[in-house]
Design a protein around this nucleic acid. Structure first.
Lengths: 176, 176
DNA sequence: CCTGAAATCTTGTCACTGGCTAGATTGCCG
DNA sequence: CGGCAATCTAGCCAGTGACAAGATTTCAGG
């Protein structure tokens, strides 16, 4: 067994996402993550500082993944909304942390950069639909964000496996 | 000092809401609530069982308050949406718990009753706007839920004190 | 009034958690 | 190859949720 793990940071982050998706944020324990990675209980602190530091890194990863997903969806406003929902439901672990700034360090430079990049991608495209881009952009964001949250919470009466189709159908109400 | 508190259950619930709104769910501690109420650390367990039990009671109260708010808003679909946002931002403590079933006992009878009552109020009214009431109702719910979540998270660029006006303006995009 | 059962609350304990400090080990750069 | 920084370990502390056993109070029924 090597003294140095080598990829501890990545291993911890991956295990954290897995844990959150399996049992929710409440079951996330730094010590458990350390055990799973086969290191001592204080090893994660070196990479993340504290629990909030770990969640900061996780949220940053999330915003980067979201930017990728939005970019890949193209310029269409509706399709970006669908991509948002797809991202939020496929990466539940990240999504659950990203919009809870009280859990992490909201001033972290890397986080802020990733955040504003994703935000830009969200609002751009609203201008193609409506003159009042600010309101339309916000309405679209709210709709897809709410749909994702409710879907992940498991409170929707209809909860199909095909999230794309659901998102497209619901979001169409806004852009028609 | 009386041995019996008398209103311990209500006192704990009120203190819990206050704590959540002040510092988030992470700072909520049963022992701290007990200290604030002037009772021993094990007293809350008698009323709520465990932490999840306390949050179940809190969520139940939240769904009842939501039903009241929706009823008071009248039959209009848009105004019910505005009332939803107003409720969620004014009762942040309740709202933060209500849609996280992993935190409480989702099968609790009283909770389920309060939940379905609120759900009925949410979806009724959608039929007045659109033929496809299910999709329209879901779109409306998602929009106001997302707007509330984003507002509470503090991630909106525009974050006016007049939440009603913001909600009305944004939600109008859906029902026009 | 009074008595026993039920409700309410206390004290004590346990395992677990996050954070801190001091020190051990390793990789790497000059 | 020597020393320095990065990485990890070991030990400790206060705080937490859950549980068990027992004390106090309330209250209904005789």
């Amino acid at each position: 067994m090597a003294y140095h793990h080598g990829q501890l940071r990545e291993a911890i982050l991956a295990a954290a996402v897995e844990t959150i998706e399996a049992g929710g944020l409440a079951t996330l324990s730094l010590r458990d993550l350390a055990r799973r990675a086969g290191v001592s209980h204080a090893a994660p602190a070196h990479h993340f500082g504290d629990r909030a530091g770990l969640l900061t890194a996780l949220a940053t990863d999330g915003f980067r993944l979201l930017s990728e997903a939005l970019t890949a969806a193209g310029e269409n406003f509706l399709e970006r909304g669908v991509a948002y929902v797809r991202f939020g439901t496929r990466h539940r672990g990240h999504f659950e942390v990203m919009f809870r700034p009280d859990l992490y360090h909201p001033d972290d430079p890397e986080l802020v950069a990733a955040q504003s990049r994703a935000s830009d991608l969200l609002y751009s495209g609203a201008a193609t639909v409506d003159a009042d881009a600010a309101t339309t952009g916000l309405a679209g964001w709210a709709l897809v964000h709410g749909l994702t949250s409710l879907y992940n919470a498991g409170v929707l009466s209809e909860r199909p496996d095909d999230v794309d189709a659901l998102a497209r159908r619901v979001a169409s109400r806004l852009v028609r």
